[in-house]
Simulated assay, not measured.
Amino acid sequence: MNLTGGIVLFASLWFLTLFCVMPIGQRSQADAGEVIPGTHAGAPSGINWRRKLIWTTAITSAMWAVLAWIILGGVITRADISNLDQWIR
């Protein structure tokens, strides 16, 4: 894995993790009791973006470190992946 591959892997994992973290702890405007006129009652209310982004970055960093160790450490090689069909039989 080169530098570009590492950055692309991190960015892909970061956005995937962000979409998984966003709904956690989310409250709707109906739950908060303050529905803004012209919006749906199920619209989010008071999202703490800083906290979600920090959690997203922390989780992604841990996943990326494990995947980088697997790739760079030779735990799983390209030869292992190309011979994967022999394991299934």
Rank of each mutant, 00 (worst) to 15 (best):
A30M: 10
R51I: 13
N83V: 01
G46W: 04
I70Q: 07
A62R: 00
G42P: 01
A79W: 03
V66D: 05
D80S: 09
F19H: 02
V21N: 11
I47A: 04
A32Q: 06
R51L: 15
L72Y: 07
N83W: 06
W69C: 11
A62N: 02
I88S: 08
P37E: 11
T77W: 04
T39D: 01
T17V: 14
W49D: 02
G5T: 07
V35D: 00
S45K: 08
H40R: 15
C20D: 13
W87C: 12
W55R: 15
E34M: 13
V21W: 05
L67V: 13
G74Y: 02
Q86K: 15
G6N: 09
T77N: 08
T60G: 06
G25N: 10
L3K: 15
A32C: 09
Q26I: 11
Q86T: 14
V21M: 13
D31I: 07
I76Q: 04
W49Q: 04
G33H: 05
N2Y: 00
S82I: 11
T60E: 04
T57L: 14
K52H: 01
S28K: 02
I36C: 09
R50M: 15
A58R: 05
S28Q: 03
N2M: 00
A68S: 09
P23H: 02
L53I: 10
I81K: 11
D85M: 09
A41Q: 11
S82N: 12
I59H: 05
R27G: 02
N83T: 10
L18E: 01
A65H: 01
L18N: 03
W14G: 00
F15C: 07
A62E: 01
I88W: 07
W55P: 08
I59C: 07
I71S: 10
I76D: 01
A43P: 03
R51A: 15
F19E: 04
S28A: 03
L67E: 06
I59W: 02
M22I: 13
E34N: 14
A11N: 05
S45L: 06
H40M: 14
G42A: 12
V8T: 13
G46V: 07
N48D: 14
L18T: 02
G33P: 03
R27A: 11
L16S: 12
I88N: 06
I81M: 12
I59K: 08
D80R: 08
F15S: 12
W49G: 02
Q86A: 15
A30W: 05
K52N: 00
I70D: 05
A41T: 03
G38Q: 12
C20H: 12
I88C: 04
P37F: 07
L18R: 08
G74S: 06
G25Y: 01
C20P: 00
T57V: 13
N48T: 09
V8R: 12
V21R: 11
I70G: 05
A79N: 13
G6A: 11
G38R: 15
S45V: 05
S28T: 12
G42W: 03
S28E: 02
S82T: 13
N83F: 07
T4Y: 09
W14H: 02
T57H: 04
T17D: 06
S82P: 02
V21F: 08
R51Y: 11
G38H: 14
M63L: 15
S61Q: 01
L53W: 07
I88V: 13
H40D: 15
E34Q: 14
L53G: 05
R27K: 15
F19P: 00
D85H: 14
A58G: 10
W55Y: 13
H40P: 12
G38V: 05
R78K: 08
A65D: 00
L18H: 07
